[in-house]
Write a protein that binds this DNA or RNA. Structure first.
Lengths: 249, 249
DNA sequence: CGACTGATTGACGGGATTCAACAACCGTGG
DNA sequence: CCACGGTTGTTGAATCCCGTCAATCAGTCG
């Protein structure tokens, strides 16, 4: 029953091994399933949040907008994530959560979640760890934007996304759907669209990647890793992929 | 008794109101107090952590170093913080924690902390919230580095630091000790030392700030806020300072 | 006093931005 | 089926913010 929640449960279980009773308690929690469109706003900045969202399919992103209209993407969420956990626990959203692609979400009532957390400490630990891994990723993005050039920044994002998908069991080969437009890549990397465009061409010409619409194929994983100084340590994935490992192995 | 732990307890209590029993349980937890030097490394990248650190006095920072020697500072910690909570809960450090100034820390055994967390859920919530506020701050730094120019980035840091000190009860007037050297400011803002130096001169010449050694005096708070598009919302401080408020009011 | 760290300055170069088009691609509807 | 409008991707030229290199100055401490 409730197999639709499988991606979430599987992720929680990766973060902290759950006992059958934990899983049962989680699955018994009331929730509403909702189909959402690409571009749909799930949580808006400044909103008081009463629900907690689990992402079942599709991709989402959190971003902030400055007064002068500039935008920064803070994180990208993949199926299995709780993209607004921060807002939910702190009770106040300070960035906007929006879908990158059509998808499906599960809505939980915060009161139910709070009860679950006290009754099943393992689940609280799992969720806490999820927020910590998120912190870790944001920190890595900060390093990315602060200390790498355009090639490195974009390469790093491509690596990270591949490995995250892989940890979540959503990537088999070396090609995947990369749900960001060039403008969104720009807003995630602190660059401009124009420069992202040129840098992507650069990477293609160098034979490192191939792109087709929203799909990316990694041709030379080693080089991509080298260009971006990528090491998956910070993702705290269970399978402990070593640097230099290819995502398709 | 154990008044030395006051800064930590007070911060926890701000994040989540604690009952006397919570405070008592916290204070009864065994801990070791340690004086630390400026520059001392508390946790190194890649280390498995068995202790949990509370910062009692002085300032610390977390940073990552890339292969080519470039460095990015991820966060600055002030008294009352648990600067390595992430590493402690995830069990593995992926950045380096180092003192910015001489100070004093409290060392707790992770096993004791884990026990406390299950016995006193309010404390777990408080600590969880602390990690969430940290995430929030790192996200704001990301926006800072990704989407603001040098003036904005440095101004933003000055604002943030002032408000954080204020929330922690460590700032009365409009002047404070800013524990970062220009090189460290550069590593926090994704700039170079040279450019930080020129930008600081710029801010001084414009009559926005005054600096003397490691001390900063904010002359024109309004302008500093405007330059950096600063809004303290993301700090989730208890006193809900509105934008435009001056730190000395 | 020397040695060291941190702050400052100048000249020069380059990676990234800006502005302003244009092309390709998409789903939609006549 | 193709015309059409909107989004996304692509290109070129000029500009600039910031980086690089290298040297000097100022303060601190043993």
């Amino acid at each position: 029953m409730r197999e639709i929640l499988a991606p979430i449960l599987s992720k929680l279980n990766q973060l902290k091994p759950l006992e059958p009773a934990d899983k049962e308690a989680f699955l018994k929690m009331p929730c509403r399933i909702k189909e959402v469109d690409s571009g749909q706003v799930l949580i808006d900045e400044g909103i008081r949040t009463v629900n907690c969202i689990g992402l079942l399919s599709g991709f989402a992103y959190s971003h902030q907008i400055l007064q002068d209209g500039k935008r920064q993407i803070i994180s990208v969420h993949i199926p299995g994530d709780f993209p607004d956990l921060k807002s939910a626990i702190l009770g106040k959203a300070c960035d906007t959560l929006q879908m990158l692609s059509p998808g499906r979400i599960a809505l939980f009532n915060m009161a139910d979640v709070q009860r679950l957390l006290t009754e099943r400490p393992a689940i609280q630990t799992a969720l806490w760890r999820e927020t910590l891994v998120t912190t870790s990723i944001v920190g890595e993005w900060l390093t990315n934007v602060g200390r790498r050039d355009a090639r490195g920044r974009i390469s790093h994002h491509l690596c990270e996304f591949a490995v995250r998908l892989r940890f979540a069991g959503l990537l088999e080969g070396n090609a995947y759907e990369f749900p960001l437009t060039q403008e969104q890549i720009a807003d995630a990397t602190g660059l401009t669209v124009v420069h992202v465009n040129r840098t992507l061409q650069d990477l293609r010409r160098a034979g490192v990647i191939r792109t087709k619409r929203r799909a990316v194929q990694i041709v030379d994983w080693q080089r991509l890793v080298q260009l971006s100084d990528f090491s998956p340590r910070y993702l705290h994935g269970k399978s402990e992929m070593r640097q230099g490992d290819r995502p398709d192995q």
